[in-house]
Design a protein around this nucleic acid. Structure first.
Lengths: 105, 105
DNA sequence: GCAATGTGCAACTATCAAGTTGCACTAGTT
DNA sequence: AACTAGTGCAACTTGATAGTTGCACATTGC
């Protein structure tokens, strides 16, 4: 089991502004300009964040006429959670094994 | 459901070097100096990473004589995974609701 | 065609984080 | 007491990133 492309996803999720964007998108798809109206940052800053989120597959662009709306890919979040959970389980298993060894069993 | 102190945890997990440290600690508790012998960074750099990991509760220090070993707190990883999973589920639920509305149901 | 709205690209600033080197301090060891 | 291995703190360099402003390009509506 490789951590693979997991780390960049966490890096993307490690920013408050991006969570604000995700939260806003959770109430419906929106364009960078629309998001700029709701958040205290410029459209360009939001565009960069959206690029990051798209890069790691948390969001996807949908053209709607002359504007580009973004949609949250909910399943990607679930996938990430499950992979993290799996690592956690593996960890517990290994730590338990180490503990047994340490206790001289 | 608040994201609470979740974001800093993701930020901590969004760094390859810190994963290397966690992986190394997974094979048994170790001091910063010991880790420096295994990883291609200095002890001081590792000490900083350990401080970050400790800050978000992924690791805890254990004094052993004159050295300070660090231990992975496996459960914290599981907790984080579950919280992320919960957010993902909530997201899917909400997105489904929005989809129904959009379809004029 | 023209104004208005939305997007895309580029340059620039500033802040933060990762990593380094250097030195002082502490605690076991002989 | 002297030596050694481990830790802690501080200053510094450097690269990445969040944010800005400014301008050029595309598309819809009148």
């Amino acid at each position: 089991m490789t951590t693979g492309t997991l780390v960049p996803v966490f890096a993307a999720l490690g920013d408050e502004t991006r969570w604000s964007i995700l939260a806003a998108l959770g109430e419906g798809d929106a364009s960078a300009s629309a998001l700029a109206g709701r958040l205290p940052v410029t459209r360009q800053a939001i565009a960069k964040h959206l690029a990051v989120l798209q890069e790691v597959g948390l969001v996807e662009p949908v053209r709607a006429g002359r504007e580009v709306r973004f949609r949250v890919i909910g399943s990607q979040l679930g996938d990430t959670a499950r992979r993290l959970e799996a690592i956690g389980v593996e960890w517990d298993r290994r730590l338990a094994a180490i503990k047994e060894i340490a206790e001289g069993l």
